[in-house]
C-alpha cells in the first residue's frame, strides 16, 4: 500500500464521521431541536463520559453478549456450512429449515428463550448466535461449492484422501467467502444483543439504561447509549476485518510474512 493510499484509508473514514457529526450538530442547532428531542453531538458524548462508571459495566455486558454470541454463531454457522456441503441430502432437508429460522422475527424468539434460559447472558448469546450463524453458513457453503473442481481432481490423482482434501484445499479456499459472512454477522451481532437485552434483562443493561433515559426525556443519554452500541458494532467489525487481514495475506501481499510457519524464507542448509 502506498503512503498516499494509507493516509486516504485512515483519514477517509475519520472525515466522513466528522462530516456526519457536523450535519448532526447543524440540524440540532439550526433546526432549534429541543434537547429532550435530540441532543448536540457533544452532549451525547458527554452523557457517556460523565456516566461512565454506571455505563462501563453495562457496556462490558453487552460486549460479552455480542462476542460470545458471535463466536457461537460463527462456529455453528461454519459447521453447518460444511455439513450442508458434505452431505447433499442435508442441503435439501436442512436448508429450508435454516431459512425458516431467519424468517422468525427475533422478537418472537425472545420470550420462550427467557423462559428456558433465564435472564442472564445465555438468551442474548442465543439470539446473537441465531442472527450471526446464517450469513456464515451461506458464505461457507458458497465458498465450498465454488472450490475449483479440477483442483480437487488433481488432489485425488495425488492420492489425497477426502479429509486431507478438505483440510488442505477446501477449507482455505472457503476462507475468503467465510470472511464476507463473518463481516455481515459482525454488523448484526450487537443488534441481536440489544434485542436480547430489551427482551429480558436482570438488573440493568445498556438497552434498559437507554429505555430509562428515554423515559426520563434524557435524549443525550439515549443518543449516548446509541453511540456506545454503535461503537461496539464498529470495533467488532474492525476486529473481524483485522482477522481477515491476518488470515488471508495472499489477498493483498505478494510474499508471505516472514514469521509465518510453513512459509519460511529460503534458508539454505537449515
Amino acid at each position: 500500500m502506498t503512503k498516499k493510499k494509507l493516509l486516504l484509508n485512515i483519514f477517509g473514514p475519520i472525515l466522513s464521521v466528522v462530516v456526519l457529526i457536523g450535519i448532526w450538530q447543524a440540524i440540532v442547532v439550526w433546526g432549534n431541536v429541543a434537547p429532550y428531542i435530540a441532543p448536540k453531538p457533544w452532549d451525547a458524548i458527554n452523557a457517556v463520559t460523565s456516566n461512565w462508571s454506571t455505563l462501563a459495566p453495562l457496556t462490558w455486558w453487552t460486549i460479552k453478549e455480542t462476542v460470545y454470541g458471535y463466536l457461537v454463531g460463527a462456529l455453528l454457522g461454519a459447521f453447518l456450512g460444511v455439513v450442508l456441503n458434505k452431505i447433499p441430502l442435508m442441503q435439501r432437508v436442512l436448508y429450508p429449515l435454516l431459512i425458516l429460522t431467519q424468517a422468525i422475527p427475533i422478537i418472537a424468539l425472545a420470550p420462550p428463550l427467557v423462559m428456558i434460559l433465564g435472564f442472564g447472558v445465555m438468551p442474548k448469546v442465543v439470539i446473537v448466535a441465531w442472527i450471526v450463524f446464517f450469513p456464515v453458513t451461506v458464505s461457507v457453503l458458497d465458498g465450498l461449492n465454488h472450490v475449483d473442481k479440477d483442483l480437487m481432481t488433481l488432489a485425488k490423482v495425488f492420492g489425497a484422501n477426502s479429509l486431507r482434501r478438505f483440510v488442505v484445499l477446501e477449507m482455505p479456499a472457503a476462507v475468503t467467502q467465510l470472511f464476507s459472512g463473518l463481516k455481515i454477522g459482525a454488523t448484526y451481532a450487537v443488534t441481536g444483543a440489544i434485542i436480547g437485552e430489551l427482551a429480558a434483562s436482570s438488573g440493568s443493561s445498556l438497552a434498559l439504561y437507554q429505555r430509562s433515559a428515554s423515559g426520563s426525556l434524557d435524549a443525550a443519554g439515549v443518543y449516548g447509549t446509541t453511540l456506545i452500541m454503535t461503537a461496539i458494532g464498529i470495533v467488532w467489525f474492525l476486529l473481524v476485518v483485522g482477522a481477515e487481514y491476518i488470515a488471508t495475506p495472499w489477498q493483498r501481499r505478494s510474499t508471505a510474512r516472514q514469521w509465518r510457519r510453513g512459509a519460511k524464507p529460503v534458508v539454505t542448509n537449515n
Partner: peptide, 13 residues
Amino acid sequence: YMLQKDLLVPWRT
C-alpha cells in the same frame, strides 16, 4: 499429473 490450468492454490507460496 498436470493440466493446462496451473491450479496453483493462491494461499500457498
